[in-house]
Design a binder for these strands. Sequence first.
DNA 1: TAAAGTAGTTACCATTTAGTAACTCTATAA
DNA 2: TTATAGAGTTACTAAATGGTAACTACTTTA
Lengths: 108, 108
Amino acid sequence: MAESECTPLEKLLNQISGQWTMYILWILDTNGTMRFGELKRKIDSISPKVLTQRLRMLEEIGIVYRSYESTIPPQVSYELTERGKELSKPLYDLCDLASRWYDGEANT
Amino acid sequence: MAESECTPLEKLLNQISGQWTMYILWILDTNGTMRFGELKRKIDSISPKVLTQRLRMLEEIGIVYRSYESTIPPQVSYELTERGKELSKPLYDLCDLASRWYDGEANT
DNA sequence: TAAAGTAGTTACCATTTAGTAACTCTATAA
DNA sequence: TTATAGAGTTACTAAATGGTAACTACTTTA
C-alpha cells in the first residue's frame, strides 16, 4: 500500500497494525518500564528478531523510548513516550471489549 | 503465532490487526450501511480480493453483517453488527489521536 | 449488437514476513 | 575452566500475504 497519500488514521493504523505491535504497546502500558528480556518473557511466543524490529520501529516513530546502558551484560529498557501513553485509552477499551467478548471461551 | 493459549486481547488483536481491517471498520462505522462498490471506492487502493477476504472474516467473527439481494445486478450491503459497533469508541480515539499527530504533515 | 454495471472468484506470481538456529561480547558465578 | 546472562544480530528458509488480470452471471442501456 502506498504510504503517501493517505489519511492520518490510515498512517497510524499502518504503523500499529503489524503482528504483535499493539500487544507490545499494551504490555508496556500496563507494566511501565521494561527490559528486553522481560518483554520477551511476557510475550513468549514472539521471536527476538521480531521483538527487536517492532521496538526499533516504535522508537523511530516516537512511541517508545529506549535507554541503553553499556554495562556488561548490557541493560536496555523500554517505556512508552508521552505520545505512546496517549494510546493507553483506546488500548484499554479494546482490552475491556476483548474480555467481555472472549473471556472464558474456548479458543478454536 | 498460536491462536490457542492466548489472552482475549491477543485474540481480538489477531483478528483486527490485518492490513486494512480496522480502516474498513472505521469506514463502516462512520458511513453506516455500505455496498461493496462504495466501500471499494472509498478505500480505493485495496484490491477486491482482499476487501472480500476481510469482509468475510469480519462477518464470520460477528463484527460485520452482510445482506445479499439477488437482483440483477446483485446488491450486497455491509454494516457493523451490535458487537461491531462496540469498536466505535476505540476507533474514534485512534482517529482523533492520528489527526493530532499527523494532520497537516508531509508523509515521508 | 456491444458495452457497462455489480459483486465478486480464480489462478498465478512477486513480495513480504516470520521463524530458526547459530553467533557476538565481556564479566562474573560455579 | 566452563557456563551463564543480556540484548541483540545474521543468514537462511518457509510460509503467508497481497496484487494483477481475467473471468463469471444477467440485465439494462446506448
